[in-house]
Structures are given as structure tokens and as C-alpha cells.
Simulated assay, not measured.
Amino acid sequence: MTDVVFTVGNVLRGDDGAGPLLAQLLDEQPAPGWTVVDGEDVPENHTHHIRSLAPQRVLIVDAADMELPPGEVRLIGQDSVAEQFMVTTHAIPLNFLIDSLRETVPEILFLGIQPQDTSFFAPVTSTVRCSVEAVHDRLVRGEGFEVYETVG
């Protein structure tokens, strides 16, 4: 059995590419006990694959506007995912996706990374890249996410 890191984001929108960047890092250096699924900007197209893996835990990672300094990382409460925290580049609201996954997945965590620039064709900023690398390091070392404050 494995846990799933489910990344979300649009690589054409600067820091909204934080999730896909994490997926790339995990492909290059996997985290023990975790399978990565890159949902890109259409995460709803990947829920069937996640269900087929039958994970006990899914960690969703996406850019989230939490009105914090760029690069800040926080766990976000499920009720807040539907509200003000989301960078809205996805076809459906992520709370619908979470509700759908919750039917078969016992634990779902949402990790938001505060973007700095989500302009079209901008690269991921160095600040957000460092934050993504830190999340990757925690996963590879098998460390938990209790270090991150929860918002919402």
C-alpha cells in the first residue's frame, strides 16, 4: 500500500506550476512510501487512477493564495479549500475533487504554497522553487507535515 502525492497546477502560469514542479522532483528522486500523480491543471481527470491505487492518504499540493509572503507553505483545512485560498486555474473547484476522493480515501491533506507570480508564461519564482524543494526534502526524508501551520 502506498500514499499518494497528488500535485495540481498549470506550468504555463508561473508559480501555479509549484505542484507540477514537485511531481518532477519526485519523479527524479522518489519519496519512500509515496506515489506521485501529477494532476496538472485538470486534476479531475486523474481521480480514477488515484482510486485504483487505493491509498490510505492523499496529499494534494497546489499553489494557494493565502495572503502570506511568497513561498509560505501551509496545510489548508478542507472547508477553506472552497473559499478564498485557491488560485483558480482549474476546471472544477478543488473542494469537489476532495469530496469525490473522500468517498474512498480515509485521509486527505491539502498543502498550499503561496505564489508570488502567476502570470502566463512566467517561470516558477526562485522563492517558490525553494519552498517546493523543501516539501520534496520532507517527503524524501519521511518527515511529517505537522511542521506546517494550518490555515482555515
Rank of each mutant, 00 (worst) to 15 (best):
A91N: 07
D79S: 13
T150F: 05
T47W: 06
E143S: 06
L26E: 07
F120T: 14
P69I: 09
G17E: 09
S80P: 00
I98S: 12
T7W: 10
S52P: 05
F85L: 02
V87C: 04
W34T: 04
I98D: 10
D79K: 12
T88R: 06
L101G: 08
P32T: 08
V36I: 09
L26I: 10
D62P: 01
A23V: 08
S131A: 15
Q29A: 15
E40M: 06
G9V: 00
L68Y: 05
W34D: 05
Q114L: 07
Q24L: 13
A122W: 02
D15M: 01
T2D: 15
D38E: 11
P69K: 11
E103Y: 02
V4E: 01
P30W: 07
D41Q: 13
P43C: 04
V5M: 08
D41H: 11
G77I: 11
L12Q: 12
R102N: 05
Q24M: 14
I113R: 00
P93E: 13
A54E: 06
G142N: 04
Q114C: 01
V61S: 11
Y148C: 01
V140I: 13
A64M: 13
R74V: 01
V37Q: 09
V11W: 05
V36K: 10
F145R: 04
D16F: 05
D3P: 00
H136A: 14
P55F: 15
D117F: 08
T89V: 07
D41C: 03
T125E: 08
H48L: 09
S126M: 10
F6T: 02
V151Q: 09
P70Y: 10
A64K: 05
S119Y: 08
F96E: 04
L139Q: 10
G152H: 04
M1E: 09
D16K: 11
P32G: 03
G14N: 12
V87Q: 01
L75G: 00
N95F: 03
L109P: 00
L59Q: 07
V81A: 06
I113L: 10
A18P: 04
P123C: 05
V128R: 12
V132Y: 12
L97A: 06
V5Q: 06
E133Y: 07
E133W: 07
M86R: 01
N95I: 05
I113W: 00
E143K: 15
L26Y: 10
E149I: 00
H48D: 15
G9R: 04
R57M: 02
E149Y: 01
V8F: 07
D65T: 04
F6E: 03
V140P: 03
P30I: 07
V135N: 02
T35A: 14
Y148K: 06
G77M: 01
Q56K: 12
D38H: 05
V11N: 09
G142E: 02
G77C: 05
V8M: 06
V42Y: 03
V5W: 07
L68E: 13
G152L: 07
S131T: 14
L25T: 03
H90V: 04
V73R: 00
P106Y: 04
A64R: 01
R102G: 09
E83W: 13
V124Q: 02
A31D: 11
P55G: 08
I108D: 03
P93R: 14
Q84G: 13
V105R: 12
V132F: 08
A122F: 05
D27L: 06
P106M: 04
Q29L: 14
I60C: 02
V81R: 02
L25G: 03
T125Y: 10
